[in-house]
Simulated scan of single mutants.
Amino acid sequence: MSKDSDEFVRSIARGFSIVEALGKPPGRHTLAEAAQIADLSRATARRILATLVTLNYCASDGRYFSLKPRALGLGLSYLNALPYWGYAQRALEDLRNEIGESCALAVLDEREIVYALRLPARRILSTNLGIGSRLPAHLVSLGRVLLAALPPEKRAAYLASGDFKPVTPRTETDPQRIGAILGRVEKEGYAWVDGELDPAICGIAVPLRDQIGAVVAAISINMISGTMSEAAAKKKYLIPLKKTAQDIRSQMVSAR
C-alpha cells in the first residue's frame, strides 16, 4: 500500500514518526527538534506531542519532551508476538554460558538488521548494542544470513539500489562481490564477517527457521577480531550454533 492510498492514515504515521524522533539521542527534544527530526510542521508536532503526553507515552517539563516507560510496551508487543523469542532467549543464554562469547538474534528490516536479543560475554566488546539497535545488513554476519534468504528478485533489488560505503578498510563495497558472498552464504548455510563494521569484531551466524522452514531471523556468535580465523570459528562454533537454531525451531514446532 502506498502513502497515497485512501486506507493510509497519515495521522497515525505522523504519530509514529514523533515517537521515533523522541527515541533519538540524547533522549529528550524540544518541539522544534522533534518536528525537524520527524519532518513535520511545528503545529502538527505540537498536537501529536500533546496527545502523547495525555496518553502517558510522553513527558514534558515545559521545554523538553521525552518518552515515558509506557512507550516501552510498543516494542515489547513486537517481541512478545514473536513465536520464538522466549525460546531463543533461554537457548542463547545457554550457548553464551557454554562458549563464553557474545551471542545475538536479529531480524531484517529493509536494509538493516534489528537486534531482538543480544547477550554480551563477560569480556566486553567495543560495541554498545542492545535490543532495538540497528546496523546495515551487509556489514554483519547476521545481516548476510538474512539477505541470503531473500527471494532472488528482492536480493537483486537490494544489491542494485545499495550505496555500500566503506566503514573500515575491510568493508566490502562492490555489489557484485557482495552478491557472490550472499550466494555462498545461501549455499553453505552460514556467514562469517571479520572487521567490516568494526575492525575489532568478527562473527559467525546461521539462519533461524520457523515451523515450515522459512528463515525468520538469524543468530550469531561474536568475538574479538584476530583471536580466530574463519576456519577455526567454523570448526569450533558452527555445530553448537546450528544446534541452538534447531533447538529453538523444535520448541516452536512442539508448541503449536
Rank of each mutant, 00 (worst) to 15 (best):
L74D: 07
L74P: 08
L74G: 03
L74R: 11
L74W: 05
G75K: 04
G75E: 07
G75N: 08
G75C: 05
L76M: 14
L76E: 15
L76Y: 15
L76T: 09
L76Q: 15
L76K: 10
S77A: 14
S77F: 02
S77E: 12
S77D: 13
S77T: 13
Y78R: 05
Y78Q: 07
Y78L: 13
L79E: 08
L79P: 08
L79R: 15
L79T: 09
L79Q: 08
L79Y: 09
L79W: 06
N80S: 13
N80C: 05
N80M: 12
A81M: 11
A81G: 14
A81P: 04
L82R: 08
L82C: 04
L82Y: 08
L82P: 01
P83Q: 04
P83H: 07
Y84N: 06
Y84R: 03
Y84H: 13
Y84M: 08
Y84T: 11
Y84W: 15
Y84G: 06
W85A: 08
W85V: 10
W85H: 15
G86Y: 13
G86E: 15
G86W: 12
Y87R: 12
Y87I: 09
Y87Q: 12
Y87L: 12
A88H: 04
A88M: 02
A88C: 00
R90Q: 11
R90L: 14
R90I: 10
R90E: 13
R90T: 10
A91P: 00
A91C: 09
A91I: 06
A91H: 02
A91Y: 01
A91R: 11
L92H: 08
L92Q: 06
L92V: 11
E93Y: 05
E93W: 09
E93K: 08
D94W: 04
R96A: 10
R96K: 12
N97E: 13
N97S: 11
N97K: 11
N97C: 03
E98W: 00
E98Q: 14
I99R: 08
I99L: 10
G100A: 12
G100R: 05
G100H: 09
G100Y: 10
E101S: 02
E101I: 03
E101A: 07
E101M: 07
E101L: 13
S102V: 01
S102Q: 11
S102L: 05
S102K: 04
S102A: 14
C103N: 03
C103Q: 04
C103L: 06
C103E: 01
A104C: 05
A104R: 07
A104E: 04
L105D: 02
A106G: 11
A106E: 08
V107R: 12
V107K: 13
V107C: 06
V107T: 14
L108N: 01
L108V: 07
L108S: 03
L108F: 04
L108M: 02
D109L: 11
D109P: 00
E110G: 07
E110D: 15
E110K: 15
E110V: 13
R111K: 15
R111Y: 14
E112I: 01
E112G: 02
E112A: 07
E112N: 14
